[in-house]
Design a protein around this nucleic acid. Structure first.
Length: 825
DNA sequence: GGTCTGCATGCTCGC
DNA sequence: CGAGCATGCAGACCA
């Protein structure tokens, strides 16, 4: 081809365009593609001269319009017409094929003839030079065309859609093949007869590539459309331009769940809108997103052919009491009756149950434009139970053109799985939980919300969800009635997922006998885990990898991010890879999950029936610890801590939490032996040991400081005495010391945890061990995790201290519970 | 005072 | 930058 100037206005003048042959046209020529802009041109089979303007015209059978082939759209159009299609790109009636509306087929098409350049061509349609993977085979088109007007067309159309879906899967293969074509001369592709026409596609040296990739679909009912994320030019074919613009996000890789479901046919995709005035200007956001199955079901329900027209996410004002639904201008002008007066006209729209609603379709002058609204929609909106953020879908019943309004509800925040049951429900009742992820459910629903195939929709509606979030400025409108109830219930569950930020230092507040942690930083969402206790009494949590879905044992104190994978398992180097075997056998896992679910159920029932008289959170936690110690198998600790979960503890103090707050001993519960090595006792001892070391260090520091102060004070007194004479009191330093000691001895151990060490110093001077242990059990969380200061206390000292404590603990256990008595469960 | 009506304003996003 | 559109708002209307 050499360097040709592409006829596409946007590409013209590009001499570096890479021209490729390869598409054999029925006329005997080759289509040539400009790989810079994608425009296609038809070339003569007799020479390499650029013949686009001479040979690239076809005439529509319906409207008679001549269509130029100088762009991809029209190229496919006349291919389409050549093989028996009806109508051109700009001809409305061509759409009858797509909309399944019976039409009269011109005889010259039905008998396989066509017109070229206005001359009747009586040649029969040749099908053998079409390849198998053509998305739009001649045979299929003829079959469909002949089916028009028959009762079988609907099924034929559905069959075609299925075939089209399957053929789409071959698109990737075709792309690879096409890449090969860029490396090979077109002449190597086909063996041609004398006219340059391939004798048979099977004789191709290489598999013949389909040039359909990323172009328009074979049947192009719209002059604008999106194929593989490329929006075709809105320009008419006559304009001969093509503008490729990516307007949809790259489809996400299917998740394993999606693959398992295998329901690709249910992907919710934006369907290019049906015909209408100015439909080409419709923004993709208004394109109806409806699955094939939904469309089929709806058509079946209404016993009519449904043509989705457009959809709109309800804004706050749309769904508000004002009762005015703002219609997208382009949609209103495309699909609603034309109106010239601002008052508009009454318009009858049917809902999917067949009920008719009368709206006022009108417009307001807005700048130099119009703003179209449907007035009086409130009853209908309420009837459909939609609200801001939901989507209303306008469709048309064919034949007849009756407008239909449907809806698709949208909710949810989080993806839900049985093992991660954060239940932000979107059910109509609080008890109805949909594991639906980011879902817009039940297109044209009757107000109900379903959960099937929602994962597929999750992927396809991410973009729209973002738009929804942007559109719904008044989020309060989403908090109505039962929805608020749902949110309130599930928020409690969400509390269990809240985590303090990694370095957050809590402050403690006691409100109505409940200890609360307060954080300066807002919480973050963490991963849901299952807490368990092992035979040894050691408590742990089970977390599922978001990548391999295997369960890993983790320390109870592990706080996981919302998305957690094995590679983040810093606690077990052997289990920090997804390739490592699962940490727990399936039977144990099942029992854990089962126990967990039971606890969830009981939690709900207890919440309703046992608001009063429920055990204190600490008691229940202690019970949980005991059960965990006594159980031989791994048991979901949460299953035995129902009462605990129903308290107002900070979410950080979850079941299984071994912090000093949660392991406070209950009164009157079972006792542990002094030599008990359970997690609770070990934790208490360890923390006491830490405290003792801190105490000793602090004491020695204090003594040194006091010595310095005494020395300085004596020096000052001596100096003052020298100046002021012997009348002054010489015992000021000792007085201050006495006052300090009195102050220390009167400390309230429960009022200021930061002064507890001073209290312990006082204890060292005579306060009982029970008081000390009270101080231990009221330590703040951050202190509880502080390790011993390096080198501050010798190992021998620690051991001696622990031994002494153990002895005292034994003594305490032998005593009756007195005020302040230590009773380690 | 509450609601309805008809714009007007200002933000967002596509071109 | 401008079209489109969500929403505010003032005046009219009504109970």
């Amino acid at each position: 081809m050499g360097s040709q100037n592409c006829m596409n206005e946007a590409c013209r003048g590009t001499t570096s365009s890479e021209w490729k042959k390869g598409w054999t046209l029925k006329s005997g020529g080759f289509a040539t593609l400009c790989y810079t802009c994608g425009s296609a041109y038809e070339n003569s089979i007799f020479c390499d001269k650029f013949h686009a303007e001479e040979s690239g015209w076809r005439e529509c059978k319906i409207c008679g319009k001549r269509v130029h082939c100088g762009c991809i759209v029209s190229r496919f159009l006349h291919e389409y017409m050549d093989y028996g299609g009806v109508g051109c790109m700009s001809c409305v009636k061509r759409l009858e094929i797509h909309s399944m509306k019976p039409i009269q087929i011109p005889s010259d098409i039905s008998n396989g003839t066509f017109l070229t350049n206005g001359i009747r061509d009586t040649r029969p349609i040749i099908v053998e030079n079409r390849i198998d993977d053509d998305k739009f085979s001649t045979e299929r088109l003829l079959q469909l065309t002949k089916a028009i007007g028959t009762s079988d067309f609907s099924s034929a159309f559905q069959q075609f859609k299925q075939e089209e879906s399957m053929l789409n899967k071959t698109r990737q293969t075709n792309k690879r093949l096409l890449n090969l074509t860029q490396e090979c001369s077109p002449s190597t592709f086909f063996k041609s007869d004398n006219n340059g026409r391939p004798k048979d596609a099977n004789e191709s040296i290489l598999p013949r590539p389909s040039l359909n990739f990323s172009l328009t679909p074979p049947i192009l009912p719209y002059s604008g459309g999106v194929v593989d994320g490329i929006e075709l030019s809105k320009n008419s074919p006559q304009q001969g331009g093509l503008k490729a613009r990516h307007i949809l996000p790259k489809p996400p890789k299917p998740s394993p769940i999606e693959l398992n479901k295998g329901s690709f046919s249910q992907a919710r995709v934006a369907r290019p809108p049906a015909e209408g005035r100015g439909r080409n200007q419709l923004l993709p956001r208004y394109w109806p997103k409806i699955t094939d199955q939904e469309l089929q079901q709806l058509s079946g329900d209404l016993k009519s052919t449904i043509v989705p027209l457009f959809e709109k996410i309800l804004s706050a004002s749309d769904a508000g009491r004002i009762g005015r639904l703002v219609l997208p201008k382009a949609c209103a002008e495309a699909y609603f009756p034309p109106i010239n007066q601002s008052e508009g006209i009454p318009i009858n729209i049917q809902d999917i149950k067949g009920k008719e609603w009368l709206f006022q379709f009108r417009f307001w002058p807005n700048n130099n434009s119009r703003m179209y609204v449907l007035e009086g929609v409130t009853p209908c909106i309420q009837n459909m139970q939609v609200q801001a953020g939901d989507t209303v879908i306008f469709s048309r019943i064919d034949p007849g053109g009756q407008l239909v309004i449907g809806c698709r509800k949208a909710t949810n925040i989080f993806d839900l799985q049985d093992t991660q049951p954060l239940a932000i429900t979107n059910g109509d009742s609080p008890g109805e939980t949909s594991f639906s992820g980011v879902t817009d459910n039940n297109i044209f629903s009757n107000g109900g919300r379903t959960s099937d195939d929602s994962l597929q929709r999750h992927m396809s509606t991410t973009l729209s969800e973002k738009k929804k979030a942007r559109n719904i400025k008044n989020k309060r409108l989403l908090m109505h009635n039962e929805d608020a109830m749902e949110l309130r219930v599930t928020w409690e569950e969400a509390q269990e997922l809240l985590r303090p930020t990694p370095n957050a230092e809590p402050t403690f507040v006691m409100i109505e006998d409940h200890l609360f942690e307060e954080f300066q930083e807002p919480p973050i969402f963490g991963k849901r885990t299952i807490f368990t206790s092992r035979i040894s009494g050691e408590q742990e949590q089970l977390a599922q990898c978001d990548s391999c879905l295997k369960w890993r044992r983790l320390p109870v104190h592990a706080l996981l991010s919302g998305k957690w994978t094995c590679s983040e398992n810093t606690w077990d180097s052997k289990r920090c890879s997804c390739y490592a075997p699962e940490d727990i056998n399936p039977r144990d896992l099942e029992s854990c999950i089962s126990a967990y679910k039971d606890s969830k159920k009981r939690k709900v029932s207890d919440k309703a029936s046992n608001k009063e008289g429920e055990p204190s959170g600490l008691d229940a936690l202690a019970t949980a610890a005991v059960l965990g110690d006594n159980n031989n198998n791994i048991v979901g600790a949460e299953s035995s801590s129902v009462g605990a979960a129903a308290t107002t503890r900070h979410p950080r103090h979850r079941p299984g939490c071994s912090c000093i707050v949660c392991i406070q001993p209950p009164s009157g519960k079972g006792k542990h032996e002094p030599t008990c090595k359970c997690n609770v006792c070990l934790t208490v001892k360890r923390r006491f040991k830490t405290l003792m070391m801190r105490k000793k260090k602090r004491q020695s520091d204090r003594e040194a400081e006091l010595a310095l102060q005494l020395k300085a004070a004596s020096a000052a007194v001596e100096e003052e005495d020298d100046k002021a004479g012997p009348a002054k009191n010489t015992g000021g330093g000792l007085e201050r010391e006495d006052a300090e000691e009195r102050e220390t001895a009167e400390l309230d151990l429960n009022c200021d945890p930061h002064r507890e060490e001073e209290a312990l110093l006082a204890e060292a001077a005579g306060i009982s061990l029970t008081t000390l242990m009270n101080a231990v059990t009221s330590l703040p969380l951050d202190m509880a995790y502080v390790g011993p200061p390096n080198g501050a206390v010798s190992t021998e000292e620690i051991d001696a201290t622990v031994a002494a404590v153990d002895g005292d603990l034994a003594e305490g256990n032998n005593r009756k519970d007195g005020p302040g008595g230590f009773n380690p469960i």
